[in-house]
Simulated scan of single mutants.
Amino acid sequence: MGQANGLVATDAGMQVLWHRKPFSHVVDYDTWDEELLEDGGIPRHIEAGSMVPLSTGMDGAWEYIVRWGADAALTEAEQQHVVVRSEPYLLVSETDVRVSGIEHITGNAEEDEGFPVQLEPGRWSVTTHLIDAEAFGEPLDFVVLIKPSTGQERYRTSEQPFERK
């Protein structure tokens, strides 16, 4: 099982797990806007598996742990402090997977924000778990689990990872 973690900030209301190849041509705000905001870009990338929304839709910075592999799981303590979990999302990784604010998606590695996830190429099933950090007693807000896709999953395609009640 692999693991990566870090503090991830956004001023655009969305942290995402994404891989660089589909965004290799994004080099400035105009190309970012054209790729993600025009013609339903965000939903298109979610459905294709090139980007997974992870956050609650608010600006700010949160602590993330990402675990991947067939045995990726929550710890016992994390399980006790899950507030809500997402349904699975599809991630099709080919290259350079990262967690960052959506506004930091770029084809230029020198401009990277967030942190890398050393994921092998393939089809993956991603679930996000919101943790009650105060009750947990540690600075941890989200745990993201990435497991190999079985090909049988139904994937969520909403820009909001959690159902609003």
Rank of each mutant, 00 (worst) to 15 (best):
G40T: 09
P43Q: 09
L74P: 02
Y29F: 15
E87H: 13
T95V: 08
E35Q: 14
I105W: 06
A135M: 07
L140N: 04
I65F: 03
M58D: 14
D112M: 06
R156A: 00
D132H: 03
S55I: 12
E34L: 08
S158W: 05
G151W: 03
E159N: 05
L37E: 14
A73W: 03
I65L: 07
E113H: 01
Y64P: 04
H25M: 01
F142S: 01
I105L: 08
G114K: 00
A48V: 11
E159Y: 07
P43N: 07
G57Q: 12
S50C: 10
T31K: 07
V117H: 02
T75C: 11
V83T: 15
E153R: 11
K147C: 08
E34S: 11
D132M: 05
A72M: 05
T106M: 04
Q160S: 13
A61L: 02
F136L: 12
S24E: 06
P43E: 09
A77W: 12
P148Y: 03
Q79E: 15
S149T: 09
A48E: 15
W62R: 14
V117Q: 09
W32H: 00
E138F: 06
S158K: 04
P53F: 10
H45P: 05
I46A: 10
M51R: 10
G101T: 01
V97M: 07
E34V: 03
E138S: 00
E103I: 07
D71I: 10
P148N: 12
Q152L: 09
V126L: 13
I46Y: 14
V26R: 01
R85M: 14
R154L: 10
T75M: 09
D141S: 07
Q118T: 00
D33E: 12
V83Y: 08
V52A: 09
Y64L: 11
S50A: 14
E153A: 13
V83H: 10
E38T: 10
L36Q: 09
R85V: 09
V143M: 02
Q160I: 05
F115C: 01
S100M: 03
L119F: 02
L37M: 15
P88F: 13
D112F: 09
V126I: 13
R44T: 15
L37S: 12
F115A: 00
D30S: 04
W124V: 01
E38L: 12
V97G: 04
S158E: 14
G69C: 10
G69I: 06
L36K: 12
V144I: 10
T95F: 05
V84M: 12
V52Q: 09
D71L: 07
L91Q: 10
V82L: 11
R154M: 07
A48H: 12
V84D: 14
N108F: 03
A73E: 11
D33A: 10
T127W: 06
